[in-house]
Computed example of a mutant assay.
Amino acid sequence: MDLLTIACLALLPVIAVAAGVRDLTTMTIPNWMSLALVAAFLPAALLAGLGWQGLLVHLGIGVGALMIAAGLFALGAIGGGDAKLMAALALWMGPDGVLMFVLWTAVAGGLFSVALILARGRLVGLGAFGPAWVRGLLQPKGDIPYGVAIAAGALMAWPASAMMASAF
């Protein structure tokens, strides 16, 4: 495998981690992160040897994920940045990785949410000594930055994806 293919495939974990950290510290996921994943998908898929049928399946999964995530956003269950990030990452996962992505995201989201709720009950005073984003996280009725769970789910599922199988 050449260096260009490795660099393209490395974009998913790099952007996923950056989006998770950004959501954790600012409660936002910039549009450019999701757009960069979408834009990089085609060259990465072609370099990985995915093939045209595989590309179409991945595109269908990405569109389906966007529709589901938009519905969750409309219901107020997730933020808009979360919805776009989930769809962009699902595009890369394909049929072999998308279910693992959803499962790992749910597990990571549940564990992170419970840990954050427990921390809010016990460590609220410590937030006064940390940066503003820590104080925001420890607010008793504050939001939960689900981009952290989405990033964790992507990192756990990425090795099982069709893109990685095609590349290796």
Rank of each mutant, 00 (worst) to 15 (best):
I15F: 09
I15E: 04
I15D: 08
A16E: 15
A16F: 15
A18I: 06
A19G: 15
G20W: 09
V21H: 10
V21C: 13
V21K: 05
R22V: 12
R22E: 11
D23M: 08
D23R: 08
L24D: 07
L24K: 11
T25I: 09
T25R: 14
T26D: 07
T26E: 08
T26Y: 06
T26A: 12
M27K: 13
M27W: 14
T28W: 10
I29P: 02
I29M: 11
I29V: 10
P30Y: 11
P30M: 07
W32I: 11
W32F: 11
W32K: 12
M33I: 10
M33E: 01
M33V: 08
M33R: 13
S34C: 06
S34E: 00
L35T: 03
A36D: 00
A36K: 03
V38G: 03
V38T: 07
V38H: 02
V38A: 14
A39I: 15
A39E: 04
A40W: 06
F41K: 02
F41A: 09
F41M: 06
L42P: 07
L42R: 14
L42F: 15
L42H: 02
L42W: 13
L42I: 14
A44Y: 06
A45G: 04
A45I: 01
A45F: 05
L46C: 04
L46W: 09
L46M: 07
L47P: 01
L47T: 00
A48V: 00
A48E: 01
G49C: 02
G49I: 01
G49L: 14
G49K: 02
L50Q: 03
G51A: 02
W52T: 10
W52V: 08
Q53W: 06
Q53V: 04
G54K: 07
G54N: 08
G54Y: 00
L55F: 15
L55G: 06
L56K: 10
L56Q: 10
V57D: 15
V57F: 15
V57K: 01
H58P: 01
H58F: 09
L59P: 09
L59I: 12
G60V: 05
I61W: 03
I61L: 09
G62A: 07
V63L: 14
V63N: 07
V63A: 10
G64H: 04
A65S: 01
L66C: 10
L66H: 08
